[in-house]
Computed example of a mutant assay.
Amino acid sequence: MIRQRVIVHGRVQAVGFRFSARVEAQRLGVSGWIKNRSDGAVEAEIEGEAAAVDAMLSWLDEGPPGADVTSMSTADLAPTGERGFRVMS
């Protein structure tokens, strides 16, 4: 199990990014959360098997239709054992 913190920049708010990310996370079987930041970016923590986390990171780097991701940064975190994927406000 691995966990990553992700910050996604670009046109990522008001395009259904968080809710689409939740659907993708559930499809891939990863846990964590995603939220909008006050600076216009989206922040998430993703936990799961390495291949599933990598697939989720690839999805976040593109986003849903209507999003325009300009950059993304990641940082390794210690896994927490969190279950489920939440959209936070």
Rank of each mutant, 00 (worst) to 15 (best):
A67Y: 06
T70V: 06
G10T: 00
V8M: 14
R27M: 12
R86N: 13
V42I: 08
Q26S: 10
M1E: 11
E24D: 05
A75I: 00
F19V: 14
G10Y: 00
G32K: 05
M72D: 05
E47D: 11
I7S: 08
M56P: 10
W33I: 03
P64G: 07
V87I: 15
L28P: 01
S58R: 15
G81H: 07
D68P: 05
D39T: 02
F19L: 12
V87E: 05
T70C: 01
G10M: 09
R3G: 06
V69P: 00
S31R: 02
G48T: 06
D76S: 10
V87M: 08
W59C: 00
V69K: 00
S20C: 09
E43H: 12
A67R: 04
G16N: 03
R83T: 14
V15N: 07
A41I: 10
L60N: 04
G32A: 08
N36V: 07
I34A: 14
E24W: 03
K35F: 07
D76L: 09
D68H: 10
V8S: 11
T80K: 07
T80N: 03
T70P: 00
V30P: 06
A75V: 05
N36D: 09
P64H: 01
L57D: 09
N36A: 05
Q13T: 06
A14E: 14
R22T: 01
N36I: 02
L77K: 10
V12D: 02
T80R: 07
I34Q: 04
A44H: 08
A50K: 13
M1G: 13
M56K: 08
L28K: 03
I46H: 07
A44F: 08
G63D: 00
M72T: 13
Q4T: 13
S31G: 09
D61C: 15
G29Y: 05
L60E: 06
R22C: 01
I34D: 01
S38Q: 14
V15P: 02
R86W: 11
P64K: 09
S58G: 15
S38M: 10
G29S: 10
E49F: 11
V69I: 08
R18L: 00
A41D: 15
G48H: 11
P65Q: 00
R37C: 13
G40T: 11
A25G: 01
G81P: 03
S89D: 13
E49L: 11
H9A: 15
R37L: 15
